[in-house]
Nucleic acid binder design. Sequence first.
RNA 1: GCGCCUGUAGCUCAGUUGGAUAGAGCGUUGGUCUCCGGAACCAAAGGUCGGAGGUUCGAAUCCUCUCAGGCGCACCA
Length: 656
Amino acid sequence: MYLYLQQQIQDVVKEFAKRQFDVDANVVVNQPPRAEMGDMALPLAMELARTLRRAPRQIAEEVAAELKKLEIVERVEIAGAGYVNLYFKRAAYATAFDQRTSGASTGKATGEKIIVEHTNINPNKAAHIGHLRNAALGDTFVRLLRSRGRNVEVQNYIDNTGVQVADVVAGFLNLEKKSAEEVRRLTEDPAVRFDYYCWDLYAKVSRFLAEQADGKAMRSTMLREIEAGGTEAARMAEIVSTAIVRAHLKTMHRLGVEYDLLPRESEILHLRFWDQAFALLKAKGAVYLETAGKNSGCWVMQYKGSETEDETAANEEDTKVIVRSNSTVTYVGKDMAYQLWKFGLLGKDFYYQPFHTYPDGHVVWMSSSERGKPSPAFGNGKIVYNVIDTRQSYLQDIVAAGLRALGYAAQADRSIHFSYEMVALSPRCCEEMGIELSPEEQKRPYIEVSGRKGLGVKADDLIDRLTEEALREVAARHPDKSQETKELIARQIAIGALRYFLLKYTCNAVIAFDFREALSFEGETGPYVQYAVVRARNIFRKLAEEGEGAKPVAISEATLAKFLAPPDGDAFWSLLYLISQRDAAAEQAVVTTEPAAVAKYAFQLAQAFNNFYHRFHILTEQNPERKAFLLWLVRKLEEQLTATLGILGIEAPKAM
RNA sequence: GCGCCUGUAGCUCAGUUGGAUAGAGCGUUGGUCUCCGGAACCAAAGGUCGGAGGUUCGAAUCCUCUCAGGCGCACCA
């Protein structure tokens, strides 16, 4: 509602400025610093004063006169140096909002497809908190886009033939002397948590390879074997990566994260996606065979236009190896092929097999090198978001540069790196976990997580701990509830706390993970917001218990007018006004790729409601008309706050 | 060395494409409640927005310089 009006006003004023002053104005419509100053504000007059060489207040008068014509506008004031402040007809606004939000928003999104790629964990070990941030951001962004009516496809790329998998395979073969068959049995052993097992093995083998003189050679041999396929190592890589992918899906599903497609790197190779992309790149001269220097024998790509005069020395710094001298392809190369496919530019497609069915019936598909089952049409995205941490910006730039080199500048622009900072551990957190730190490290604000060193907080461990903590609280507050119910509520609270914690920071803030903060259920947290919804619902539950129908009742504009009128209605109006801003918060989050905006909004809404809840008693209200109004307001709050939590992937429990 | 990011209250962070008196949470101090369940509410204290210039009606926000911290620049991803 808010967003709609804001845009309408923007359009009206823009058109007016063109007609009246003959200028293309950048019309900003925002909110005044205090509610008494109006509902929306336009600082336009000050901006135009210079170019028009007229007093700002005079311009403001003209803009104000134009805006007074709008049906929804109650009055307009000129304030300060020339702000145009609008006051809406509260009852009309409320009625319009009620109508817009009452209709069930059905219908599948059919517009141009947006592909969001996220999670992308190397399938060689258990997921850790860093991966959780990626998934929480990606999944929330998907929910955001869908809430705005966009058609979204979620992909989780599986790097099943990369070095990280190769290392674990090397560990099984060289350190543990296990056959592929023995590893397979290990994945089926209920007594073994395979992803945790690999977590430890990966750390072990990383240390081992670092100590070996020929560690590098061992790694590249292993990689080649796995890429080529058909060997014991390749079979083992398939077993390991598939088992780990299943573990990851399970972990992520605990947070409510689902995917549509799991494209695998092995198919990029086996279905010759890379050969196709390579041919395109060669044909356009985007890559060339280096014959001298350190990259001799490699196919490299020129990165950033070398404007430097001395082309010999500086050049090498600006090139990126795409195909190694042993003819294996780097990750970036494979990513280019993948990126081309996402935009439908490769001229090839995967085969697909259903991989897993979620409890809700939704199916995740996996790429396959053999003809599979009839599947939905994947790929062919109009816009592509890649949720990848900021440390990989350089690689993302190279992939985009590859698209440009092939003449796909428009697609390169629509290939968006959804960048975010890493999750690190606070020194205190390391201490708690028994990780030894050097005196130097102790002084740092945070310690980087390292899968290679086995240094990090495993996702499932964290979720378990949060759930236990929540269960303790729930059990204390609701001793009468069944164990099953208590556990469900505890899970919902734990996930609410975790997702909110991961989402409340803006993307370019490093999260220094700390148990105390992550386990907090008070203040700016998920449970605080959930609690507000529970409180609102309790009112309706109580109402039903008392025999008064809890069903929503239509409310007249006259009633709305009566109780929203200033000054007594100010508190109600400001709450309602905030409730109506959900679409604006969501849209802002989409445009800025910043889900934190929605988290912030959810918190503000919960805060405003808690204040309202404390000030006004609804069930004891004697005036039936006023009571109906208050109930209507609470109903609206409950709807919109629940929907906002839904965007964040957080459920509101039945009780707390 | 080059590139990118970050410096805002004691701590952790917001700050709406440059807008009015810079805001939250935690922590501290004090208060609210026989209540629709306190995982709550209210209030107080706490700021040279790292520093210095500049741009303009107006700067936490844009530009330049500078200080501090982080990340990246592999035939790893």
